[in-house]
Nucleic acid binder design. Structure first.
Lengths: 148, 148
DNA sequence: ACCATATAGTCAAACAACTTGACTACCTAC
DNA sequence: GTAGGTAGTCAAGTTGTTTGACTATATGGT
């Protein structure tokens, strides 16, 4: 593949990612969850399964733990997350989603589904399936970070 | 497609985009172009063909023209771009890439090609081609913005 | 059991990117 | 020619993040 083709692929990927991020964010806002930025969504992704510590979050987001701590402050203040004592380490705290936080996570899923449905006009169901599988194959195991 | 599948697709897409951005940035730095952030890359994308005005850039990046102007200041100070008088409008200035700026743009293409080659381990040449065409079909016409 | 060292988290100050507000120079249309 | 709009910049304020310093708890060696 030529350099220019690789760049075209990259640009398309980044354009789609940017647009998707914007749509998910708008969809979440439209469902009544305000005061959140896309960066919070990346935190939710890490918190959702079983909670996480501030340090876990910091690594996941690629920021300092101070920044992660402030982000958690914000989520707690807005009622989306809560700090609970960590069951195995008295120094640490387990950050978990509240009911409202789970509602927001569901809203994000709905918004994502809605955004993806918007691609139906350009892609068949089969192409969409192939796209998903292809991306899952090259997606890094690691964290989702808003690098730029 | 179920909501959770759409979310998995979205997460994979964002993870790949984040990783790709990081790799391109690292590759550009490795080629000796320093003091640049990924955001500058998005500006380059708009400046590269024929230059652009500050207002064009601001719209493209989704920021205020003051922010775009500051970003141009930085590129000029670092020797990647220059402000030239606009041929048709004495109020405006045409921002163009310098030789060093073009060198950086080429470095970004090489870095992108290198990053994409890293996917060869997981994808066949044919799958890569399909991925590129699929993404180009759903990529918005609009600007590439670092929305998050 | 004790001490040295490392880790989890927070507070505070410094910093960087961006926004809002105000202004000048130039363009465009009536 | 004059009124209103647009391109760009300067300055100040806001926001998110980092760097530095500190406390509390954990861990490993002796």
């Amino acid at each position: 593949m030529q350099n220019s083709e690789a760049m075209a692929l990259s640009a398309a990927l980044l354009a789609v990612a940017g647009e998707l991020t914007r749509r998910i964010h708008d969809g979440v806002v439209a469902r009544g969850f305000e005061g959140l930025r896309p960066a919070h969504g990346f935190a939710f992704a890490r918190l959702a399964p079983d909670g996480a510590t501030v340090t876990d979050l910091a690594v996941h987001l690629g920021v300092t733990k101070q920044a992660a701590s402030q982000l958690v402050d914000e989520l707690v203040r807005k009622g989306y997350a809560a700090r609970r004592p960590h069951p195995e380490d008295a120094r640490a705290r387990l950050i978990v989603l509240t009911e409202s936080g789970w509602g927001c996570a569901r809203a994000a899923e709905e918004a994502a589904a809605e955004a993806v449905r918007g691609w139906d006009a350009a892609l068949t169901e089969e192409e969409l399936r192939v796209l998903r599988e292809t991306l899952l194959r090259i997606a890094p195991d690691g964290p989702i970070r808003p690098t730029w």
